[in-house]
Design a protein around this nucleic acid. Structure first.
Length: 584
RNA sequence: GCGUUCGUAGCUCAGCUGGAUAGAGCGACGGACUUCGAAUCCGUAGGUCGCCGGUUCGACUCCGGCCGGACGCACCA
């Protein structure tokens, strides 16, 4: 579709340039013609507004459209016709040729929707970044889904992507769960208690609140424990290691469950001291300065901010120091063209400053750092709060969604048709969550309504999965010899119904959606497109007989269209980390 | 106070980067299964796109100012 659009755009621009020359106007403005999509297929497939040409041509937009339509009719144009519709010049592309192109998507398989728009670009994606004192919650699920699916989308556009996870495994919050375990643990283990290990650790972190009530010095003691940890106290390190293994082990299980993976893990405990040297270098080069109190700072007035401390007067580093060192360290590990940080929008200031600092140090690649900022996930009752116990934990959420999916399968009596019911239910649950998270624009805060995501109706992941399952069912039946499709010939020109044409257009436009999603780091673009296709297919399926069609050629062609739709659904769902289901 | 960001149907979200009558889903109401899977489809109701100006042939979209919410403005991470 893209190439067709561009061919028409070039043809229209050429005709406009001719017209401008005839009228003695500057022909160079013809290059600025814009191609858009008319609101309704009955108005054409590509639209060119004539308004901007009115002044230079000293003609009304409708007359310009007419003049151009005549000119294009006699000249050599791509397949299709251009018509004047009011102040627009609209192109009706040749349906048979576009349909033929769309049906060929079947043989492209997984390659359909890939582009080379980012070929040769190395992109490092940092996401998830869990703390090792508690299990993942709903907010992490948004981060993970955004990071993983954006990575897949970038790869689909030809980029080489390295996914990395920075585990926050040190600090006073980690010490709190350790202190709490020292007080209440009595040598218990996750295995002994039959608990998922990250939840086990998380429970002790929560119990720290009890500890504070019993022991007013608990906060102080946590600080002291951190000092012991930094000093390398063997007993402290041993407990820290044990509890971290529990936490990280459990978190990794959740990643496996949700289909998230990383190419490389970084641990904060191993790198939190890096960056000091870089700050010293910056001091030497004059990018930073030493304040009267002895601390090292940077003047941020060039970006409209004040000063930022980079090294304390005692020479110890802070969060920013660490991130400076880490970015440089990573670029040495794997020289990237771009580095994308998937981090909540509350850290916008941090990244703005970080990027400026790295640029001040003279790193060329610092210009291609990007903070993929996303909003909070709230509940209908308001914000999730650890203290109030309103945090929706990821495993529990998936468990309850799975239970609901099982109930639904049972209610429809599809236990046998589905095969492994537990596995199917799990995939539906994952589809529900990942789609719900994907369909919202990343930058915005969103409300997660558990009840709504469970409904499996309307604009949801399961709805899209369902359309995939229906098409799969048609293909199974065809393979079993049902219907006449296998005796017919696929003839693209037979796709004449409006619902068929709508599907052709949407399948044809899918690669552009993937490209746009990549350019914007926005999986919601793919989600919206998939829903549009699923919805259009549902209408088509309802209105037109496919397998049961009497005409063998029509049956074969409609089935071929369904297969093309299936290719898009499969490819698109994969980009969104939503499992595809043959049956549900 | 300053900065960033968001404000579209009762609720949850789209709106192709400035174009044609502002769209979906949920919820409400009313229809469609002896026929390829009804986890579906069709219809009705519901909007001064927060408010006021500006730029433009044209603004939900860009600019300015208000109003309202969120998040920042650490020698915490």
């Amino acid at each position: 579709m893209k190439t067709i659009k561009e061919a028409w755009k070039a043809a229209v621009a050429a005709a406009v340039a001719d017209l401008l020359r005839e009228k003695g106007a500057d022909p160079s403005i013809a290059a600025a013609v814009v191609a858009e999509t008319p609101p309704d297929a009955s108005m054409g497939d590509i639209g060119f507004p004539m308004f901007p040409l009115a002044k230079p041509l000293r003609m009304g937009p409708p007359q310009i459209a007419v003049a151009l339509a005549e000119r294009m009719a006699s000249s050599k144009a791509p397949d299709g016709v251009a018509k004047a519709i009011g102040p627009y010049l609209n192109v009706f592309v040749d349906r048979a040729s576009l349909a033929a192109a769309v049906l060929s998507a079947r043989s492209s398989g997984e390659a359909y929707g890939r582009s080379a728009s980012l070929a040769g670009t190395r992109i490092m994606m940092e996401f998830s970044s869990p703390n090792t004192n508690k299990p993942l919650h709903l907010g992490h699920l948004r981060n993970d889904a955004l990071g993983e699916s954006t990575s897949r989308i970038l790869k689909a556009n030809g980029a080489e992507v390295l996914k990395i996870n920075l585990v926050n495994d040190r600090g006073v919050h980690i010490c709190k769960s350790m202190l709490s375990y020292m007080a209440y643990g009595e040598g218990r283990t996750p295995d002994g208690e039959g608990m998922k290990s990250d939840h086990f650790v998380g429970d002790y972190y929560v119990k720290f609140n009890d500890l504070k009530k019993e022991d007013p010095k608990a906060e102080e003691k946590a600080q002291e424990l951190l000092v012991k940890w930094e000093a390398g106290d063997p007993e402290t390190i041993a407990l820290w290691k044990t509890m971290n293994e529990w936490a990280v082990g459990g978190i990794r299980k959740t990643y496996e469950r949700t289909g998230i993976s990383f190419d490389k893990y970084y641990y904060e405990s191993q790198i939190y001291l890096t960056g000091k040297e870089e700050v010293q270098k910056g001091l030497a080069s004059g990018a930073f300065f030493r304040a009267p109190d002895g601390s090292v700072r940077i003047d941020l007035s060039p970006i409209g901010l004040e000063e930022k401390v980079l090294l304390r007067k005692d020479g110890t580093s802070i969060y920013m120091t660490q991130d400076i060192g880490l970015a440089i360290h990573r670029h040495n590990d794997w020289p990237f063209d771009r580095l994308v940080y998937v981090v909540a929008n509350e850290q916008q200031y941090h990244f703005k400053v970080l990027f400026h600092i790295l640029a001040s140090l003279g790193y060329e690649w610092a210009r291609n750092l990007y903070h993929l900022s996303y909003g909070l996930v709230n509940l209908p009752e308001g914000r999730m709060k650890t203290r109030e116990g309103t945090v929706v934990d990821a495993d529990t959420l998936l468990d309850s969604l799975r239970e609901l999916a099982i109930e639904e399968i049972q209610a429809k009596g599809r236990e046998d048709a589905v095969g492994d019911m537990a596995e199917t239910a799990e995939k539906i649950a994952l589809g529900a969550v990942h789609y719900y998270l994907a369909q919202a624009t990343p930058a915005k805060d969103m409300v997660f309504n558990p009840k709504e995501s469970l409904s499996f109706n309307g604009n949801t992941g399961p709805y899209i999965q369902y359309m995939g399952a229906r098409i799969s069912s048609l293909l199974r039946k065809r393979d079993l010899g049902e219907g006449k499709a296998s005796q017919g010939t696929v003839r693209p020109e037979l796709l004449t119904a409006e619902s068929e044409w709508e599907l052709v257009r949407l399948v044809a436009a899918y690669p552009e959606a993937v490209e746009l999603a990549g350019a914007e780091y926005n999986p919601a673009v793919v989600a919206a497109h998939l829903y549009a296709i699923a919805s259009a297919f549902s209408k088509f399926y309802h209105d037109e007989p496919i397998l049961t069609c009497d005409d063998a050629d029509i049956a074969a062609t409609r089935l071929a269209l369904s297969e093309a739709v299936l290719v898009v659904l499969k490819n698109g769902l994969r980009l969104l980390c939503i499992p595809f289901l043959e049956a549900m």
